[in-house]
Design a protein around this nucleic acid. Structure first.
Lengths: 326, 326
DNA sequence: TTGTAGGCGTTATCAG
DNA sequence: CTGATAACGCCTACAA
């Protein structure tokens, strides 16, 4: 910047004014500066600005596995919302070589260019309860579990099960079985708990759910077992892949879907990847989750003090794997 | 930091030494400082450090659509590799409200905390040819097309078609049709071009490819058309979803796969989402692509001056949708 | 082993 | 309308 000032024959302050588009610079001067900037390929230093300004214009994001299902869309939504407010995203991953502690992750993230931070917690975290956010850095946690000190936000993983079970019950089903996701997943546990709650609330017997690993093959395998269950009239799977696997297994065993057994999945993740997708499922707007996450951060940055716990409801997508019980 | 120094009764310099783990501090002093840091919740300022140090420890990443197929895995690989070298990722999106120009994107990214930058270009870019990277900021472009001034890296989209076609030819196929991805996609064009080249090299007639939109439904639709093509013995689809759609369509028309028609896809994206996936396909290691991208950036940061063009080969995954021609 | 001085690039503030 | 000054937080270099 000093170079630009010298070349243009003005003070550094005037260069600064031009860079920041302030009005009070006469046109001739502005042009001189602009030419000098162009010639020198000048661009303002982030370090200088942020030291001076006391903030970065960046939000920190720390995740487990960006690769996991909805996470990408969430990152996308967060990034878009951030950009709309002039913010960039500083992306890191949890250090998986040790047991994961939010405290450590927060300290490390605080040393990066961030005005606040977001943690995406797909798995159980050791110090979740007692974690205290770093003063001055608004901290949002993407988590189904609420937190005492940080605003949390997530898809309503329990609620989606109610949606599914209620829908099935409205079609006359009572013997509604469940294929759950793996035990390491919080979402899987919530979805299973929601299904159980809904059955109990309706006064229906609960048959213990089978546990898969999210893949279609595990769904097939468990679907084959469930084909022996002659009472079952409906199946609620923890995600669409397992639902698809189960449907194929049921059909392979001569059980028609939906005529004999109705099936509901979760995530609406098959669209485009399977031809003629007819699976009734629950859709979550993961982009929206990212956007809302940024909104929470931004509100807090602007002075909002309330700790909130936001659950974003899913939406039932009616297709044709559900029929009325005969 | 000044606060910590005052509380601990030492100079700021000593605090700095403790923070940076320098040996030449006597234990008693170190403890005083550590206690003071803890009490005040001190963490070093990124702005101060980077202004002083002249670098950020961050790599800028600018993408079109993180949501698109392999991109996530690439981001994941890049982020991991970066972290292993003590780097974080500064993530932004191209501004799609205007025609996309690398020059503008680079200027904007240069004002963020970045020691270099990576562009992921899934689509055609107006100023690709004439773009000049910003001096002092190593710039890598993820692109199948080479660039005069920037190292480029991508999956070998043309090569994968050769892999597929050669494989089919070794099984005796000559009448190999193609379903291409949408015209807006560079990858789709490359894959189609590779298929065409391979056929021509083998002296085989080229039947113009049909154009889909990457979805399984478009694959089904085009597969139904191809079912009329009585000469076809093999089909090479631009991605696995379309391959799957086409297979279902062929079977719906009484054509057996692989007995009557062999099918090869690309991406190996069906694993886990479809039960009993038997589709022969080409797999790209997208995580590796991200890792290699970071390596290129890092090498250049360390003084490497050569402009490279790296094409990462795919790998044929033999499953059972290909048979010898009868 | 510890302390002091200076400057990295920027911009708010005040003076001209 | 333009310029001078100071300060943001840190760390290298040197001095004590």
């Amino acid at each position: 910047m000093a170079d630009v000032a010298k070349l243009a024959g003005v003070s550094r302050q005037t260069v600064s004014r031009v860079v920041n588009g302030q009005a009070c610079v006469v046109e001739a001067t502005r042009k001189k500066v602009l030419d000098a900037m162009d010639e020198l390929g000048f661009y303002p230093s982030f370090a200088g600005r942020s030291l001076r300004g006391g903030h970065y214009g960046c939000i920190g994001l720390c995740m487990f596995d960006i690769t996991r299902a909805g996470n990408v869309a969430t990152v996308d939504g967060l990034t878009s919302a951030a950009r709309a407010c002039g913010y960039a995203v500083t992306l890191t991953e949890f250090d998986m070589s040790h047991p994961v502690r939010l405290k450590d992750a927060a300290r490390k993230l605080a040393e990066l260019p961030v005005d606040g931070m977001v943690f995406n917690t797909n798995r159980a975290i050791e110090d979740f309860e007692e974690f205290e956010p770093i003063a001055g850095l608004p901290t949002i946690i993407i988590s189904v579990r609420p937190h005492a000190a940080c605003t949390t936000i997530d898809s309503d993983q329990k609620g989606c099960s109610h949606l599914a079970v209620d829908y099935l019950m409205r079609h006359g089903h009572r013997a509604i079985r469940h294929i759950a996701g793996p035990r390491s997943s919080i979402a899987a546990a919530e979805r299973a708990a929601g299904w159980r709650d809904a059955l109990i609330a309706a006064g229906v017997d609960v048959v213990e759910p089978l546990v898969g690993d999210w893949t279609a093959d595990s769904g097939y395998e468990l679907g084959a077992k469930l084909a022996q269950d002659k009472d079952m009239t409906a199946l609620y799977a923890g995600n669409d892949q397992m639902a698809l696997g189960a449907i194929v297994a049921l059909r392979d065993h001569g059980i028609r879907v939906p005529e004999d057994v109705s099936v509901v999945g979760v995530d609406d993740s098959l669209q485009g990847t399977v031809p003629h997708n007819r699976l009734t499922t629950i859709r979550f707007d993961m982009r929206e989750r990212g956007k809302r996450t940024f909104d929470c951060f931004f509100a807090e940055l602007l002075g909002e003090r309330e700790v909130k716990h936001i659950l974003l409801p899913g939406e039932l997508v009616e297709r044709s794997t559900v029929a009325c019980v005969s």
